[in-house]
Simulated scan of single mutants.
Amino acid sequence: MIKAKDAMIAWNGADSRLADPSSPPGSVAVGPLINAHESDWTRGYLYSGGAAHTNRRTMTGAEQRFQVMRDWYELVYGYGLHPFVVHTAFLRIDEYQEIIKEMGMGPDRGELGHDPEVGYGRAGDFPVPEIDINHIGQSVHVWPRA
């Protein structure tokens, strides 16, 4: 788990066709800010956000929580990523888990942060894509399968 002020987000739009196939279209990754002595886990992604924007590193409370949900919405609506793919990656962000648990729709069984004392699961019964979850250092990469 990682606080939003420290969480970078990297992604490729659903219609992105990269010369670098290491991160497929519609994929998203969440991980810590990159230190000078660490390898760049965002390589292969076209876009970055979250704590990549320096102003996000000082936000707290409701302002930070709003930005986390704004990021989620932008990836799903603006870039066409599947909601389940983004949800799976964002489960690494503390504030995202807090928000969805407060809504009574916390992580489902088998998902990071599942709490049987909190309501969980999707509100609708719709198919979710098959995904691959890859860990590179402290970052997690969620890729829809082709």
Rank of each mutant, 00 (worst) to 15 (best):
I99S: 10
I100Q: 02
D94Y: 00
M69W: 00
T58L: 14
E95H: 01
V86R: 03
Q67T: 03
F84H: 14
R65E: 15
R92G: 05
L81W: 02
M103E: 07
M69H: 00
F66D: 08
R92Q: 12
H87S: 14
I100A: 01
R92C: 07
I93S: 09
D71E: 15
I100K: 00
Y96Q: 11
V76S: 06
R92P: 01
G61C: 11
K101N: 05
G78M: 04
Y73V: 08
E74A: 05
F66T: 11
H82T: 11
L81C: 07
R92S: 14
T60N: 14
I99Q: 09
T60I: 12
H87C: 09
Y77F: 07
R92V: 09
A89H: 06
M69I: 00
Y79N: 11
E63I: 10
M59C: 11
A89L: 12
L81N: 06
M59Y: 10
Y77Q: 04
E102F: 09
T88P: 01
W72K: 11
A62V: 10
V68H: 02
G61I: 09
E95M: 03
G80N: 11
K101L: 04
A62F: 11
Y96N: 09
D71V: 10
L91E: 07
R70A: 15
G80C: 05
I100W: 00
Q64Y: 05
T88F: 03
M59Q: 13
L75M: 15
F66I: 13
M103R: 03
V85P: 03
E102A: 11
L75W: 04
L75Y: 08
I93R: 03
I93W: 02
E95A: 09
L81D: 04
Y77D: 01
I99F: 01
M103L: 13
L81V: 13
